[in-house]
C-alpha cells in the first residue's frame, strides 16, 4: 500500500518536473545554479558569499515587513518604530533581525572580500566580478547610512548629521550633494522623506540587478581555486551525474540499457567466432 503510494508520488512528481522542464528548462537551470564545484581546500570559506546573499535576502524580507508599520514622517517615525518594538506581534524580532543582520552583513561582506582578495579570486577573468562586488559594497554602505536616520532618534539623527557634514567638506560636489540629501539647506521633514525614498526604493532597486550580475559572473567563471583540482573535481562530478542518470534509466525502464546489450551481444558473437 505504502509502496504503491510512494511510486505514484514519484510518478506524479516526475511528471510535473518533466512537464516544467520541457516548457521552461527550469530543472537544468536549477542544476546549473545549485551545483557548483569548489576546491577541496578551505571549502567552508566559499560559503561567505552565500552568507552575504542570505543576509541581504533577510534585509529585503524583514524590510518589507517593517514597511507595514513604519511611517516616514518626523512626528510619527519614532513612534511607529516604538509601536513595532513594543506592541506589534514579533515586532521586536522582525526589527531585531533587520538591525542585526544589517550589522552582520557588513562584517560578512568584509570577510567575503578578504577571502577573495587573499585567494587571488579577483584575477583574470574575474576582474569585473570584483568591480561589481565593490559597487555592491558601496550600495550597502549607503543603505546602512540612510537606514540610520529613519529611526529619527538622537543617535541616528546626529550620526546622519555628522556623516553629511563629512561629505560637505568635499570640494565642488560637497555642497550640492548634501543639499540633495537634506532636501534643502537644513535638516528637516524633507530629509527624512528623502532618506526613506533612497533607503527603501532607490538603493534596493539598484542593488538587486547588481546582485544578479554578480551571480551571473560567478557562474560564468566558477569560483576561483586550484585549477587542476577544479577541473579534476568537475570531471568527477560529470562522471557521477552520468552514472546516476544511467542507473535511473535502468531502474525506471526495467529494461537493460540497449547500447550495452548490443555491445555485449556483439562481444559475445565475436567470442564465439
Amino acid at each position: 500500500m505504502i509502496g504503491r503510494i510512494r511510486s505514484q508520488a514519484v510518478d506524479t512528481s516526475k511528471f510535473v518536473t518533466d512537464w516544467m522542464e520541457h516548457r521552461t528548462g527550469i530543472v537544468t537551470m536549477m542544476e546549473h545554479f545549485l551545483y557548483e564545484p569548489v576546491p577541496k581546500r578551505g571549502a567552508w570559506l566559499y560559503t561567505l558569499g552565500s552568507a552575504t546573499l542570505f543576509t541581504i535576502v533577510l534585509q529585503f524580507l524583514t524590510g518589507i515587513l517593517l514597511l507595514f508599520y513604519y511611517v516616514p514622517t518626523t512626528d510619527h517615525a519614532w513612534d511607529s518604530i516604538n509601536y513595532i518594538m513594543t506592541e506589534a506581534y514579533f515586532g521586536q524580532m522582525i526589527r531585531g533581525i533587520h538591525y542585526w543582520s544589517a550589522n552582520f552583513l557588513l562584517v560578512v561582506i568584509g570577510l567575503h572580500m578578504a577571502q577573495v582578495f587573499f585567494s587571488g579570486g579577483y584575477k583574470a577573468p574575474r576582474e569585473l566580478n570584483w568591480v561589481v562586488g565593490v559597487v555592491l559594497l558601496l550600495l550597502v554602505i549607503v543603505l546602512a547610512f540612510t537606514g540610520y536616520l529613519l529611526r529619527w532618534d538622537q543617535d541616528g539623527f546626529w550620526a546622519s548629521v555628522v556623516g553629511m557634514k563629512i561629505g560637505s567638506y568635499s570640494p565642488f560636489v560637497g555642497g550640492p550633494t548634501i543639499h540633495f540629501l537634506l532636501g534643502g539647506d537644513v535638516i528637516g521633514p524633507a530629509t527624512l522623506s528623502r532618506f526613506f525614498a533612497i533607503h527603501v526604493w532607490l538603493l534596493p532597486a539598484v542593488l538587486a540587478p547588481f546582485i544578479g550580475i554578480h551571480l551571473y559572473l560567478l557562474r560564468r567563471h566558477g569560483v576561483f581555486g586550484n585549477e587542476f583540482e577544479y577541473s579534476d573535481r568537475l570531471a568527477k562530478l560529470h562522471e557521477r551525474q552520468r552514472l546516476e542518470s544511467y542507473e535511473r534509466y535502468e531502474e525506471n525502464d526495467g529494461q537493460p540499457y540497449m547500447g550495452r546489450r548490443d555491445r555485449a551481444d556483439r562481444n559475445g558473437d565475436e567470442d564465439e567466432e
Binding site: F180, G184, V186
Partner: peptide, 17 residues
Amino acid sequence: FILGPVIKTDVLGQTDV
C-alpha cells in the same frame, strides 16, 4: 524633480528657514 532642493539652494540661493 529630485534635484529641486539643489537648484533652489545652490542656484537660486533660497533657504528653507
